[in-house]
Computed example of a mutant assay.
Amino acid sequence: MASIPTLFTTTSTLHRSNYPPPYTCVDSNSNSNPNQLQLLAKKSLESRASSLLQSCSSFSRLTQIQAHIIRNSLQQNHFLASRLVSSCFTLGCYSYASRIFGQLLSPDAFLFNAMIKGFASAGFHREVLHFYCMMLNYSYSFPSNFTFPLALKACSKLASIVEGRALHGHVLKLDHSSDIFIQTALVDLYGSCCEAQDARKVFDRMTKRDVVAWNAMVSAYVRSDSILLAEEMFEKMPVRNVNSWTTMIGGLLDLGDSRRALTTFHRMQLHGVKADNMAIVTILSAIADLGCLSSGKWVHKYIERNVIQIDVFVGTALIDMYSKSGSIKDAKLVFHAMRSKNTSCYNAMIFGLAVHGLGEEAIRVFEELRGSRMEIDDVTMIAVLTACSHSGLVEKA
C-alpha cells in the first residue's frame, strides 16, 4: 500500500506549488486564550461570511468575501475554507479553488472531500485521484465512505484498473467494504474496465443490493460483451427502473441485434416504465439501424404524449432516424423546430440531406453552421463532402 500514492501523483497537472498564493497566510490560532467576547465576535463573522458565500454569484463577489475573511484572520477556518472552495467550483473557478486549498496549513478530511467532490462534479477525474493521493499523505486525514465512491468513479471514467485495484485495497484496509455505495462503485469500476468476473465477485459479496447495484452488474456484463449473462442477470432483477431497461436495450444494440432491442423497448412499455431521454435516444438508434419508419413515428408520438423534451440529443437521434428511414421531410421538420442545436445536430441533418441527393440544401445547412460560429469538426467535413459527391457538385467539393 505504501507505493499507492506514487501511482496517483503522476496523473495530475494541478499542484499547489504551481499557483501563486491568493493571499498571505495568517494563523488564526495565534491568540491562544481569546475571551468570550472575542469568540462570540468571531462566530458572528464566520456566520456572516458563510451566509455571503451561500448567495455568491460572481468571481468578483467571491474575492470580496475572501478579502473580508482574510481581514478578520479567518482564512484558516476549515468551515469557511470549504465554503470558499465549493463556491469556486460552483462558479467554474477550479484553479482558484486549488490556490485557496494550497494556503491551508492543515486541511482536514472534510476539505479534501470538498476538493474531490468539486473536481468529480466538473469531470476532472485525474485531479480527483491527485487530491485523493494528497489526502493519503496527511496522517490526520483519512478517506471515508464519502471519499471512496468519488475516487472509484474517477478510476471508472479513466478505465484505470491499476489505481482502481489499489483503491479497492484501501477500502478493505480501512474496513469500508460493507458500504453499499462503495461496493456499487467497485462493481461499476470493474465493469468499466471489462473485468466482469471481478465485478461479479464484489456483487456476490454484497449483503444488500439496490437497483443501482443490479444495474451496475448488468452493465458490467454488457461492457464485457457477455450479453447472455447480462440478460440472465436482468431477468433475475427484483426491481427494474428505466436505466435497467436502457442498459439492456443498449447492449443488444451494440451487439447488432436492433430488432431484439426494439422488442425489449416494447416490453418496457408493457411493464409500465416511462422512457427518459437516454432510453429514447437508444431506441431511436435501433430504429434507425432497422430503417423502420412506422416504429420511428410511433416513438416520436410517444415523445409528444409524454412531454419528453426534444433536446439536442433526442433531436439529433430523430433527424438521424427519419433520414435513414426514408423520410427526409420529417427530418427537416424536426431540425427546423429545434430551439437549440449543436454541431452533432447539424451533422445529422447534412448527412441526411446528402444521402437523399439534396446537395444544395446540405451546403446551405453547412453555411448556416458556419454562420453560427459553432465548432466544425471532421464529421461535418465528411458530411458536406458526401453531399457534394452524391449531387455531383465537384466545384463545391
Results as ranks from 00 to 15, higher is better:
V314R: 10
M349P: 13
N18W: 02
S258I: 05
F265G: 08
N241A: 01
L393V: 04
M115V: 10
L385T: 01
N306V: 15
K157M: 10
G291W: 07
A275L: 03
S139V: 13
A81L: 06
T263V: 13
S86C: 02
M237G: 01
L333K: 15
K297F: 08
N29G: 14
S55A: 12
G250P: 07
A213C: 04
R259Y: 11
H68Y: 12
N347T: 02
D175W: 09
D377P: 02
K297I: 12
G357W: 01
I69P: 00
H356R: 13
W245Y: 11
V334G: 01
A220R: 09
S327M: 00
L167S: 08
Y96R: 03
L84A: 05
C194K: 14
P149V: 03
V299Y: 01
P238S: 14
Q197Y: 06
A397S: 14
Y94K: 15
I308T: 03
D257N: 15
L7H: 11
M233R: 14
N277G: 15
S244K: 02
H390Q: 10
A230Q: 09
I363S: 11
H336M: 06
S3V: 08
L37N: 13
G326Y: 05
C193N: 09
G256F: 01
Y140K: 03
G256S: 05
G357R: 03
V312D: 01
F142T: 08
Q64N: 09
L105N: 13
I182F: 02
D198A: 10
S372W: 02
L53N: 10
R165G: 00
T246H: 04
D188N: 15
E235S: 06
A185P: 06
L333D: 11
C56A: 09
R260A: 05
F119R: 06
V222Q: 00
H170I: 11
W214V: 06
I303S: 03
F234D: 00
A81S: 11
F59W: 00
M338T: 10
L104Y: 00
V239E: 15
M268V: 03
S121I: 13
L158R: 06
G191V: 04
E195M: 14
K329H: 12
V242A: 12
N241L: 12
G359M: 07
